[in-house]
Design a protein around this nucleic acid. Structure first.
Length: 544
RNA sequence: GCGGGCGUCGUAUAAUGGCUAAUAUGCCUGCCUUCCAAGCAAGCGAUGAGAGUUCGAUUCUCUCCGCCCGCACCA
């Protein structure tokens, strides 16, 4: 069963590459994990999906407005939204069984921990300062190394591992990690005999953050300590260890740091007031946006299902708090219209009511819509009731009023939000998965994509029946040009024989193949062949 | 990030410490072909990257990169 699933997935990946839908990113240079490039057919299919969405949820509705916000946003956006804090949870791994835990879940007494670390580190700092360490750890002399080993030895770190840690720690401009990172949690758990809950061993590795936000800097900067709140540097002038604390007040100026947005939603919330001022729409109304988001996934996997750079389509629908359930149901139904429009069979789409314990902290209700992908049943899109969490944050942190005033009654409140959130790549993968078919024609296996006509990257393929008959080719060109002008997504193919062309078009999901034969020269009619049934009939070319 | 497996033309496979790295398919050119991958002929196209061992490495070793499976992660 499992291998069957993988076979289908592999067949789709292979087809996608072979026929020019999706290529591995940076392929000629050996690739880059978690990135994918869209080829000529892929980009068209993807855009068709995105345009369909925009038409259904923005242009096609009276209560919707579109925006396109910048990917780079002010730091404070991600602090207010909670992303900065929640993305920097340090994790620690058991070296024996590879179980992973959040460090703060293992340390019961935070105050005691802090004082232990500070005491240790204060002591360590004093020793380090007297050592007058050269800039590169590789230049440390024997005496210096021994002293450093001694520091860590006091903390019951096995001696044979210490110098390796020192290199690791002091390698980066003598930077030392903040107290919940690196070696300190490990030492503490060792001292306190806190063992792995799964295997009972005490074999902790260094604690690491897995910050899922990509960072970059505005303007020139060489800082590499962007995501740490507290850190230590060895001042190059005085050779003193100095402590720096990054706070919300100084963080921008400290590092000129910006994040690549990990979700598009905040670009909507930050423009809520702008749209309100420009249009003052009646509640309920929504703002829709499509765009790239970036998450530094630990382990991108499963083709385009989880990648580090991806495209979202999101709606924030602003409602009277008393009427959120009504709006939730509205969007629940609209989501089903969307999966229908993608051609996804209803029996392959499943609603999953997310229990409170699994919901994000801001959400009072969430439904995940899952799809039966070849890799298994996985989330296709989400529908969440976000309350006034985001606008409330903005009002508090930015000090700008986010309240809505009801016309007439002058009732004022911060609107609540219903958020349907769609992933473009997941939609595309679902479309490819459900469209992928294998059947048999004349005893030969045939692969085709039963793409819905409005999504297919090529709508018509035009061919002369025979390539070596100039009159057929000329007539076919005529038909091709006329169709191309009318429909755009039309392909010309005169390669090989007619059967080959059909198969080639089947593989890229072209719904109709138009062939010009000798009868066409007589009465202008052409044959049109249906991809799914392979049946054909004669029509006049201006009929479609 | 950890553990295991893997990496050869676009795709699917083969082989080798040393001769021009093979086969099919694909693509391409020509001929032919009156509707579902026909045929003939010519051509294009690969050992993931780097280092080491060696007279010589695609083959052996190491590092990196990537892919697959499992774990963990997925606010």
């Amino acid at each position: 069963m499992a291998s069957q699933k993988n076979e289908k997935m592999e067949a789709i990946v292979s087809l996608a590459k072979r026929r020019g839908f999706i290529y591995p990113g940076s392929d000629v240079y050996g690739g880059l994990s978690g990135t994918w490039d869209y080829g000529p057919l892929g980009v068209t299919l993807k855009r068709n999906i995105m345009n369909l969405w925009w038409k259904m949820f923005v242009d096609g509705r009276d209560d919707m407005y579109g925006v396109d916000a910048a990917i780079l946003m002010n730091q404070k956006v991600w602090q207010a939204s909670g992303h900065v804090d929640t993305f920097t949870d340090p994790l620690i791994t058991c070296g024996n069984c590879q179980s992973r835990y959040r460090v703060d879940h293992l340390i019961s007494d935070k105050d005691e921990y802090s004082s232990e670390v500070e005491q240790f580190f204060g002591h360590a700092k004093q020793i380090i300062e007297t050592l007058e360490l050269p800039e590169s750890p590789f230049d440390y002399n024997e005496e210096q190394l021994q002293a450093l080993v001694g520091i860590f030895g006091e903390a019951h770190v096995p001696a044979h591992e210490t110098s390796q840690y020192l290199i690791q720690y002091l390698d980066n401009n003598h930077q030392l990690a903040s107290k919940y990172l690196g070696i300190f949690p490990r030492m503490y758990l060792h001292l306190k005999n806190v063992n792995c809950a799964k295997c009972g061993q005490n074999a902790w590795q260094d604690a690491q953050t897995f910050n899922m936000m990509f960072t970059t800097t505005i303007g020139p900067s060489s800082s590499s300590i962007l995501d740490k709140k507290t850190y230590y540097n060895l001042d190059k002038g005085t050779r003193k260890v100095i402590e720096k604390t990054v706070t919300s007040e100084n963080i921008e100026t400290t590092n000129n740091l910006v994040y690549l947005r990990p979700e598009t939603a905040q670009g909507i919330f930050t423009n809520y007031k702008n749209v309100l001022d420009s249009f003052y729409p009646d509640l309920p109304f929504g703002i829709g946006q499509q765009g790239k988001a970036f998450r530094n996934e630990i382990s991108p996997r499963d083709f385009i299902f989880r990648s580090r750079e991806f495209e979202q389509m999101e709606v924030e629908y602003f409602v009277d708090p008393a009427k959120w359930e009504e709006a939730f149901e509205l969007w629940r139904n609209l989501v089903w219209e969307w999966t229908d429009a993608l051609g996804l069979p209803r029996e392959s789409v499943h609603e999953l009511e997310v229990p409170e314990a699994d919901r994000a902290h801001y959400s009072k209700r969430t439904i995940d819509f899952e799809f039966d992908f070849p890799i298994g049943r996985e989330e296709l899109l989400g529908l969440a009731y976000r309350t006034d969490f985001d606008l409330g944050n903005i009002q508090r942190e930015a000090g700008k009023g986010m309240e809505y005033t009801i016309k007439g009654t002058n009732e004022r409140f911060i609107p609540h939000v219903i958020e349907p959130s769609f992933g473009v790549e997941r939609a595309l993968m679902a479309v490819l998965s459900s469209a992928y078919r294998e059947d048999e024609q004349n005893g030969e296996k045939r692969i085709y994509l039963a793409l819905p006509e409005h999504l297919a990257p090529v709508k018509y393929c035009v061919s002369p029946l025979l390539k070596n008959k100039p009159e057929l080719v000329a007539k076919a060109h005529e038909v091709y040009t006329a169709l191309k002008n009318k429909h755009g997504a039309v392909m010309w193919d005169d390669n090989g024989n007619i059967g080959k062309r059909y198969r080639r078009q089947d593989e890229i999901g072209t719904p109709y193949c138009v062939v010009i034969d000798f009868d066409s020269l007589e009465d202008g009619s052409v044959t049109i062949r249906d991809r799914d049934t392979t049946e054909q009939h004669r029509v006049q070319p201006d009929e479609f």
